[in-house]
Nucleic acid binder design. Structure first.
Lengths: 233, 233
DNA sequence: CTATAGTGAGAGCACTGCTCACATTTAGGA
DNA sequence: TCCTAAATGTGAGCAGTGCTCTCACTATAG
């Protein structure tokens, strides 16, 4: 009788259960170690049954990627919403991103680490992936999108021009509009945030700097300040 | 009769052959997919024989990591040695790093990507890992290590102090000596270089920016200029 | 009520890292 | 020189993986 049917409901519930347990296993084993069989085992079903709901391990990973992007963006958006001041929001976005990454390192690695070879991100992921950058560009737009590029801008300007030839597309995607330098520096800031978080999280910095940067949060905050300064926020 | 013995020589040669074929397989399959059995197969020996030379897959990875660090550093050092001008050397180091990464993406992922879970980098890797950063700090030292921090420095300064409490150790390691701000910005620059290269290589930026940054090399060059400007190079 | 499509179980294939018992070769000391 | 001990290679085997296929069963639509 039910238009959707009891089967459709069960199906949705089970698919949710699959992604949930997979996400929970991700807190312990890391993306490349995630096992379809282990998920099935924990759910008490045959491993082959999983493939009724997810066509392959890669498709399961895609589900987890989308969920990670979305949850991280949600956290960061909430953190950013707590203040109106552009500079404080800038810091909140940066620090919030790091916080989420430290709390969920494997899920961060899933979306910002080196991809598993052969995996091509489908279209479903680009929407959720754009949410945090959109917050940043929103701030740029708010402060007037006139970055206070320091004295070296003239030297930099020459090398910048050929890099940006499709700003219109970007502006349309994010519904913002500002000049080339602001875009370039904005992308640079976002790149640096995830680069610095990755560096801390994956222990690359430790191989080089040792414990020179004892208070990692304070150092990251310093970096955020530098980036904000570059953009005149 | 030979003090070392023919066996030791064979052993060394075979160990070299193993890392060589492993490195060649790395050009096609990526770190997490690298297979001990496949290496053995290509060398025409039983898979179990490999374990006479390498105690585990992780130890093989460590060998490859060290070799990747060393070869990349060699390339970049050569590129940097072509000029004496600090600014040009700065650019050569940054661009050289990117060049190597684009030519050997899997090996770059091996050393700067997300680590395989459970793998802890042994001491052998920290020496080779420090070579390129040492080039950068060398330039900082050369230009006087007085970064031209822009107007926002005063605001930044407060948050910087707690982050740096073991500068002496770092200075000893790299045999350089400069002030806290120079160190902090230097680490930031290096962090950004590998972060930006990773972002381009692993396709993270593509999910966000699309093809707005058409000429990726030009954009990366722009970033290098900004970083150089921050450090007064 | 029946034909159909959805669902689960289990066996099986090809692959992985790794261990072990066994044969063979080599090296060094009595 | 001989002989013991160490080093080396082989193949079987264990436990795990992703994924496919066949078979039974059940809910749904006509």
């Amino acid at each position: 009788m039910s238009a959707t049917g009891i089967r459709a409901r069960n199906r949705a519930a089970l698919l949710e259960a699959i992604t949930e347990t997979a996400n929970r296993q991700l807190t312990q084993v890391g993306p490349s170690e995630l096992s379809v069989r282990a998920v099935a085992r924990e759910l008490g079903m045959a491993s082959s049954a999983i493939y009724r709901y997810v066509s392959s391990r890669d498709e399961l990973l895609t589900l987890l990627i989308v969920s990670a992007y979305d949850e991280m963006a949600g956290d960061v958006e909430r953190a950013a919403a707590r203040t109106r001041d552009p500079h404080k929001r800038w810091m909140a976005i940066g620090l919030g991103s790091r916080e989420w990454a430290l709390a969920q390192p494997q899920r961060f690695a899933l979306i910002y680490g080196s991809p598993v070879p052969g995996y091509a991100a489908p279209q479903d992921t680009i929407g959720p992936a754009t949410r945090i950058p959109a917050l940043l560009t929103g701030i740029l737009q708010e402060v007037g999108a006139q970055p206070q590029v320091p004295a070296f801008t003239s030297r930099v300007g020459r090398s910048l021009q050929p890099a940006l030839n499709d700003v219109e597309q970007w502006a349309g995607l994010t519904q913002t509009r500002f000049n080339d330098a602001a875009l370039a520096l904005g992308v640079m800031a976002w790149t640096h945030m995830i680069g610095s978080i990755s560096s801390e999280l994956f222990g690359h910095r430790h191989n080089v700097v040792g414990d020179s940067l004892a208070d990692r949060r304070a150092y990251y905050q310093f970096e955020l300040q530098v980036l904000a300064g570059l953009l005149g926020i």
